[in-house]
Amino acid sequence: MKRWVRKMLLALLISVVILALGIGLYIQQPKFGTLPQGARLERIERSPNYVNGQFQNLVPTPQFSEGNSTVSVWWYFLFAKKERLAPIASIPAVKTDLKT
């Protein structure tokens, strides 16, 4: 019985390693994207939201890691006064003729 359990654990370990390697190799395919280079990288770096090598939110968002509790974050989200809840100008709309 003990020998059987060892064989099963070894087979499970080998299966997990093969699965992890397969997934790792699969996600290296070009369809999953690559790091930006050339003109795309230059366009990203010119973005006003790109600061110190990463994108920054336009609106500050509460972080749990900054000492805020879950309750305080939810309280702020649900009850704090928000600015500009309605659009300043009218939103353009285009009537579509679905029969053409």
Rank of each mutant, 00 (worst) to 15 (best):
L98K: 14
L41Q: 02
Q29K: 15
P30L: 01
W4F: 10
E83F: 13
G22M: 06
L78W: 15
S15K: 08
I91M: 06
R40L: 05
V71Y: 15
E42V: 03
S47K: 08
T96K: 15
A86D: 11
P48M: 10
A39W: 03
I23G: 05
R6M: 02
I27G: 03
F32Y: 12
L10D: 04
N68C: 04
S15F: 08
L58H: 06
L85H: 11
E66T: 09
S65H: 12
R46C: 09
A89L: 07
L9F: 08
G38V: 02
S90T: 11
G22K: 03
N49R: 09
A80P: 08
F32K: 04
I14H: 01
L12E: 00
I44Q: 02
S65Q: 12
T34I: 08
G22Q: 04
Y50F: 15
V16C: 03
T96E: 09
V59R: 02
A86E: 12
P87C: 05
N49Q: 15
A86Y: 07
V51W: 03
P30N: 04
Q37W: 00
K99Q: 13
A86I: 05
R84I: 04
Q29W: 07
T70Y: 13
G67W: 10
I23K: 04
G53L: 01
I88G: 06
F79A: 15
M8K: 11
I27P: 01
I23M: 12
V51S: 07
I91W: 07
N52H: 14
A39M: 07
Q28H: 04
K95V: 14
F77V: 12
I88F: 07
Y50L: 05
P92M: 07
T61R: 12
S65C: 11
T100M: 11
K7C: 08
L10H: 04
Q56M: 10
W75S: 01
S47E: 10
V73R: 07
K95P: 07
A86Q: 12
P30V: 00
K81Y: 15
E83G: 07
K7N: 13
Y50D: 02
